Simulated scan of single mutants.
Amino acid sequence: MNILLIEDDPRIADFLQRGLRAEGLQVQRASTGPEGLTLVLDTVRQNKPDMASTVVVLDLMLPGMNGLEICQTLRSQGVTIPVLMLTALSTLEERVAGLRMGADDYLCKPFEFEELLARLEALARRGQALQNVRPKHLHVADLILDLESMRATRAAEALNLTARELALLELLMSAPGRLFSRERILSSVWGLNEDPLTNVVDVYIRRLRSKIDDGRPVPLIQTMRGLGYRLEAPPEAQA
């Protein structure tokens, strides 16, 4: 689960960040309203693979832009990430206002950390259910990845890929033309605990390229030296 934490009280923010990370969750943090809005919108634009399990934890009272304004702005721009709003104000009017502005749940301070976790897990499940409209196939030129059977073909020829190669291919095909850094690939496919100095990404890119591109007239995997990798079809192959 990926948590976007928008909280201006450093004591509360530090406590939540430590606790959530101790539970194995990823946490990104902002301390003002404008910073928080930018954090959420940037996350949406990046369209990360973990978007379906992303939840915003949003304080109501923030400098620069309050939680209600942030929530209303997100919903007006079509952002559907679940929002859990935190507030020291527990009046019915405040809770109703937050829900009407698009918040998915409300938690009043002070709260028990276990309750926060339970609410986040429920919101993440709801977000994943809404994301179940994901396509059944990914297409780039004549390369097809069936996301249900996790089988790949190129020009109708089956590709014999390992589980890790399939995960790498799914990441690259999820955003054709997008440049993925080695660090981003390592984090997404191997996890945050992998040694950042390892060359495993380069090794698997070579393996994947040998199975997808070798002997083909149109190569799809491109190396941007010093920057990373992307998968896309040249314009002439984009029919």
Results as ranks from 00 to 15, higher is better:
residue 152 A to D: 00
residue 169 L to T: 03
residue 170 E to M: 06
residue 189 V to I: 15
residue 189 V to E: 07
residue 193 N to I: 04
residue 196 P to A: 09
residue 188 S to G: 03
residue 224 M to E: 08
residue 148 E to S: 07
residue 234 P to R: 14
residue 200 V to A: 11
residue 206 R to C: 00
residue 171 L to R: 01
residue 202 D to Q: 05
residue 200 V to K: 14
residue 167 A to F: 00
residue 150 M to F: 02
residue 150 M to N: 09
residue 175 A to W: 08
residue 200 V to G: 03
residue 152 A to W: 03
residue 151 R to L: 02
residue 182 R to I: 13
residue 181 S to D: 09
residue 223 T to E: 14
residue 176 P to A: 08
residue 210 S to H: 05
residue 197 L to S: 10
residue 204 Y to T: 09
residue 225 R to I: 15
residue 226 G to I: 13
residue 188 S to Y: 06
residue 180 F to I: 00
residue 183 E to M: 10
residue 151 R to S: 02
residue 237 A to K: 08
residue 173 M to D: 02
residue 170 E to N: 14
residue 207 R to S: 13
residue 196 P to E: 00
residue 195 D to H: 15
residue 199 N to S: 06
residue 195 D to R: 11
residue 144 I to E: 11
residue 209 R to Y: 06
residue 146 D to G: 04
residue 199 N to M: 01
residue 145 L to C: 03
residue 146 D to Q: 07
residue 177 G to H: 02
residue 163 A to S: 10
residue 162 T to G: 12
residue 165 E to H: 10
residue 172 L to D: 04
residue 183 E to P: 01
residue 174 S to A: 09
residue 150 M to V: 02
residue 153 T to Q: 12
residue 152 A to R: 03
residue 185 I to V: 13
residue 227 L to N: 07
residue 158 A to W: 02
residue 183 E to F: 11
residue 171 L to P: 00
residue 232 E to V: 10
residue 216 R to F: 10
residue 212 I to R: 01
residue 143 L to Y: 04
residue 193 N to H: 11
residue 146 D to F: 09
residue 184 R to L: 02
residue 182 R to N: 10
residue 228 G to H: 08
residue 177 G to R: 07
residue 150 M to C: 07
residue 227 L to P: 00
residue 177 G to P: 10
residue 234 P to Y: 05
residue 179 L to E: 13
residue 162 T to F: 01
residue 211 K to Y: 09
residue 234 P to G: 11
residue 175 A to C: 06
residue 230 R to V: 06
residue 229 Y to F: 15
residue 231 L to W: 11
residue 204 Y to V: 11
residue 164 R to H: 13
residue 147 L to D: 00
residue 161 L to C: 03
residue 199 N to F: 06
residue 172 L to Y: 03
residue 226 G to S: 09
residue 191 G to N: 03
residue 161 L to I: 14
residue 198 T to L: 06
residue 151 R to I: 03
residue 201 V to K: 10
residue 153 T to I: 02
residue 143 L to N: 04
residue 182 R to V: 11
residue 236 E to A: 09
residue 220 L to F: 04
residue 190 W to E: 11
residue 204 Y to H: 09
residue 214 D to Q: 08
residue 203 V to K: 06
residue 176 P to T: 04
residue 226 G to Q: 06
residue 178 R to W: 04
residue 159 L to H: 14
residue 213 D to H: 05
residue 149 S to F: 07
residue 180 F to D: 01
residue 172 L to N: 09
residue 170 E to S: 14
